[in-house]
């Protein structure tokens, strides 16, 4: 099996091999283009996030995929699901807005809570922080797709699995001939 694969590579001439490398590069760069394009369209720095905790169960479970937008002129309102970053925490949090106070000049402060948590999020915020503001928000959840994010969770938890998948894909693209 492997032997035949390497024979394939050996039989390729230089041009064919370069062509395969180029098509591999095309795949990588188009994935990057789609991600950056989504960032422009949704105005969010991270348009797709994977739910990592059970704090929004039973709505969202670990491994569900959320699609975010972050339009500046669309006001934040109570009941919306926001994804926000807290100083000192690497992982963004996905929770629902519970209270909101908006001043005449448009400055807004709000408090969030996870559906599955019994208390609000003041304990999760940075020490001394009582409210979230617009600059903490990464995006607002607009779309939902279950289970798909499980793949990335497995990849992060088992790095060997990640490298195996990457190696297989890379080898397949390089060796495969149309």
């Amino acid at each position: 099996m492997l032997q035949s694969l390497f024979d394939d590579v050996k039989r390729m001439n230089k041009r064919q091999f370069l062509y395969q490398v180029l098509s591999f590069g095309m795949i990588v760069s188009s994935a990057l283009m789609i991600w950056k394009g989504l960032m422009v369209v949704t105005e969010s720095e991270s348009p797709i996030v994977v739910v990592l905790s059970g704090s929004m169960e039973p709505a969202f479970h670990r491994g569900d995929l959320l699609f975010l937008t972050n339009y500046k002129d669309e006001p934040v309102r109570v009941g919306e699901i926001v994804v926000f970053k807290v100083e000192g925490r690497d992982i963004p949090i996905v929770h629902r807005v519970l209270k909101l106070h908006e001043k005449e000049n448009g400055t807004v402060k709000f408090l969030t809570k996870g559906d599955n948590n019994s208390v609000d999020d003041r304990g999760l915020y940075a020490p001394g922080q009582l409210w979230l503001t617009k600059k903490d928000v990464v995006g607002r959840a607009r779309g939902f797709l279950p289970y798909v994010g499980m793949v990335t969770i497995y990849m992060n938890e088992y790095p060997k699995f990640k490298y195996a998948v990457l190696a297989c894909l890379g080898l397949y693209v390089l060796v495969h001939r149309e």
Binding site: P58, A59, R77, V78, G79, R96, L98, K99, L100, H101, E102, K103, E104, D115
Partner: peptide, 29 residues
């Protein structure tokens, strides 16, 4: 899959033009 119900009180004060406070919520699966 699920409805998330919430009862909101909305009002304005001299301090804040818009206040929204969720008073009660309920998950119906």
């Amino acid at each position: 899959k699920q409805l998330f119900l919430y009862l909101t009180a909305e009002y304005s004060t001299p301090n804040n033009q818009l206040n929204q406070v969720v008073l009660w919520d309920k998950i119906i699966q």
